[in-house]
Each structure stands twice: as C-alpha cells, then as structure tokens.
C-alpha cells in the first residue's frame, strides 16, 4: 500500500508553517559549514543555501525509513505522527542521519564558498536568519504554505538590504529566480547560481594539473527550468577534466527520481537505477552532479559502483590550494 499522500504532504506543510522549513534541523547545525571561513554577515550580495544541502542527510535517513513502511500497515500511522508533530518535532525521530553524510554535505557548501572566494567574488551570508525557500511545498501543490514562506523570505531579504543572491542548488535557484517573481509584486532580487557566477568569472584558474574523465549528470531543474547547461561543462573543462556525456544529456537529461522520493521511495529508486545505468555506460571515471537531491538519489541507486560527487568537489581539487576533506568519525 502506498504512503498516505495527504498526511505525508501535511506533515511537511505543518512543519513549513510552524517551523519555517519542511524538515526541521537546528539553525546551529545549518550554519556550521561556514565556520572559520570569515564570511561577513549580510551585505548586498549573499550566498543563499536555502538549507537544501544541509537538509539532505536528514531526508536520506527519512526516506529510508519511509521506504521500509511504504508497503506495510505502518504507513497508516503517518497520520498519527502528523497529529503529534503539530505539538512537538516528531520529524526529528523519523530522520537520524549518519554523521558521515552530514559532514559530506557540509563540506560541499564549504567547497562552493571556497571556490567563490578563489574567484574573487565578494559575498556575505545571513547565517541563522536564512530560510528554506519552499521548493518541496511548491512542487507538491501546497500553495498556501508556499506563499507564506516566499513572503517571509522576501521580507527577510529586504530587511537586510540584500539585492543579489548566489544560490547553490537548482531548486532554490528556480524558486528565488523564476517562481517568486510570479507571486510577489515588485520582486526585485537578482539571482544567480554559483555555477553561473564562477563560469562568468575570469578569476578562476586551475592550480593543479588534472587528467580525469568526468560524466556530467544534468539536473532537470537547472537544464530544463533554468537553462544552466553550458556553464558546468565549461567549468569542468577549464579545471582540466574531460567531459563525458551520458545517453540522455543537456536539456534532454534523465531525471534521477528524487522528486517523488518523499511519496514513492521505491519507485524513485527504480528511476535512479535507470539513470545510473546510463551514467555507467558513459564510461567516465567519475560522475558530477549539481543538485543535492540528484547526488543522494543516484548514490543510493548506484550501490557504490560509481564515484558520484557534487561538481564543486571536482572543481575545488583543481582551482583551490587547500582541499578540505571531511574528518573521519
């Protein structure tokens, strides 16, 4: 029996309304990636994480648990969980991420910030004040909760004099650049993905010689919603990598399955498996993703048979002097 759609969406919508994020994590943990990077607080241009990379380890853990109950009678108890979640944070019990995953995703954001610094880009960060942009609520059609959240985000940006955002994932980019202007009158925030910012920058030159073939997995949202197609390829080539293309690529890329993971975990895994096969057939020595959801879904579906990593992890090896690696447990 599939998971009860209304209650699963309801759980996330309740969280968004009450806790300002679909999956509550502490603000302290969400900003930990920025430690010792000396990023100024606020400013006209800020990096906007939207908490997507920080949330993913928790979502991965939750999806595993949801997958276990998807076809069992326990799925019916999601409604009970939702009832109690309104009073206290039940979601925290559903998702206990591995420490290694938390560190891995945190390191990706650090790498992105280091790349921007290396390129000479000046930016600030809103730290604990930053809010989730609402992509999941929007995709699931929870428009009421989404509109409230979008207004909260816009008010926050205006309150802090922010004019320009550097986003780090495709879903937050799409919300802030293409969806918010359709629902907020006078929306005037300039939004660029860090991939676009780096590609347009002359300040980024390779410091190390790299010879490796990397297969590019385009995110549906970057390629078909936002037209970000050439920039990641250009950056990889500039870094010294040879770019390999899978069977479905660019604006005809194959979805990773991630968007339906919260409601249909097993089906999402099957879609991911199909894409993994295409990526294997491309015969690259590694696969570069640009979206935390793609990375998590494809890693899960590949069972460790492919080296799948965020594009920033490949870029930092070429463009930055010090590569920081997550410490072992």
């Amino acid at each position: 029996m599939p998971l009860p759609t209304g209650n699963v969406i309801g759980l996330m919508v309740d969280n968004l309304k009450k806790r300002k994020t679909v999956f509550p994590i502490s603000r302290r943990k969400a900003i930990k990636w920025a430690e010792e990077l000396d990023i100024p607080e606020g400013g006209e241009t800020v990096i906007y994480t939207g908490s997507m990379y920080q949330l993913l380890p928790y979502m991965v853990a939750a999806v595993k648990n949801m997958g276990l109950i998807e076809d069992s009678f326990l799925g019916q108890f999601v409604g009970v969980g939702r009832f109690f979640n309104r009073m206290f944070n039940v979601s925290a019990f559903i998702a206990r991420p591995s420490r290694a995953n938390v560190k891995r995703y945190r390191q990706i954001i650090r790498n992105i910030a280091m790349l921007l610094k290396q390129a000479g880009v000046e930016f600030g960060y809103l730290y604990k004040k930053e809010l989730y942009a609402g992509a999941l609520a929007y995709d699931l059609g929870a428009d009421g909760a989404f509109r409230i959240q979008a207004q909260r985000v816009y008010d926050l940006l205006k309150e802090h004099g922010v004019r320009s955002l550097i986003t780090i994932d495709p879903h937050t980019t799409n919300m802030l650049r293409s969806v918010y202007p359709t629902i907020i009158d006078g929306y005037d925030i300039e939004v660029k993905s860090y991939i676009e910012v780096l590609a347009a920058s002359n300040g980024l030159q390779p410091l190390h010689n790299i010879e490796k073939e990397i297969t590019v997995h385009d995110s549906c949202v970057y390629s078909r919603y936002e037209g970000v197609i050439e920039e990641p390829r250009q950056l990889l080539r500039r870094a010294g990598y040879t770019v390999k293309e899978p069977e479905d690529n660019r604006d005809l890329t194959h979805c990773c399955g991630g968007p339906i993971e919260s409601l249909f975990p097993k089906m999402a895994h099957q879609i991911g498996g199909k894409r993994v096969q295409q990526l294997k057939n491309a015969n690259g020595q590694g696969v570069a993703t640009m979206c935390p959801i793609c990375m998590a879904t494809l890693k899960e579906a590949s069972d460790g048979e492919l080296e799948i990593d965020d594009i920033s992890s490949f870029l930092v090896k070429a463009f930055c002097e010090v590569e920081e690696k997550p410490k072992k447990k």
């Binding site: 699931l140 059609g141 929870a142 549906c220 078909r224 399955g257 249909f264 089906m267």
Partner: peptide, 28 residues
C-alpha cells in the same frame, strides 16, 4: 503525485503545453 515534474515531456511537446505546471495546478 507520481509525476516527477522533470519536464522531459514539456521540452518535447509540439504544442507548447505547460505540462509540468498543469500537473502542479491539479496538485494544488
């Protein structure tokens, strides 16, 4: 709700139908 909103259909649509957005309207 099984639709991925991936827009593979939309970029191939010969009639420029906003398929993903239409599905989202039904969800809404």
């Amino acid at each position: 709700y099984q639709c991925l909103l991936c827009k593979m259909c939309e970029v191939n649509c010969t009639a420029d139908v906003h398929i993903a957005e239409n599905v989202r309207f039904l969800r809404s």
